[in-house]
Write a protein that binds this DNA or RNA. Structure first.
Length: 114
DNA sequence: TCAGTGACCTGAA
DNA sequence: ATTCAGGCCACTG
């Protein structure tokens, strides 16, 4: 494990942990909020690492979807685990594995406004 | 060390 | 409007 990048990972976990229930955000939004506009892929990588590392505190990684609202990480969560969790929080889907972004999209920048 | 891969995004044809 | 290609940074083999 490398130092430095770990901080980025931690930041990602922090932001994701701040996502309200029934809301979702995109990798690009998080990466831009962290200052790394082109690091969208790294966000997903961080979450993947989280699932493998299991930090200890709860990180709603299932609330993080791509810009299209597709549950791209469902395969890593376990097929329907991600979808069921979102449904449990009151998130609606336009498609079996696509979240209604126009209704449940949440931008990390909201943290500063709050 | 070099090369390939990835839970993505943006721009151009 | 849709489809294709490129780029981005970090990690693994």
């Amino acid at each position: 494990m490398k130092a430095g990048s770990n901080d980025f990972y931690q930041k990602v976990y922090e932001v994701v942990a701040q996502i309200p229930e029934g809301k979702v955000t995109s990798y690009g939004a998080i990466s831009r909020y962290l200052g790394v506009a082109s690091g969208a892929r790294m966000v997903g990588y961080a979450l993947n690492n989280y699932l493998a590392a299991d930090l200890g505190y709860h990180v709603p990684a299932h609330r993080v979807v791509n810009r299209l609202g597709q549950l791209t990480g469902r395969a890593y969560f376990g097929d329907d685990t991600m979808r069921e969790r979102l449904e449990q929080e009151g998130v609606s889907f336009t498609e079996p594995y696509t979240v209604d972004m126009s209704r449940h999209f949440w931008d990390p920048a909201t943290l500063t406004e709050v």
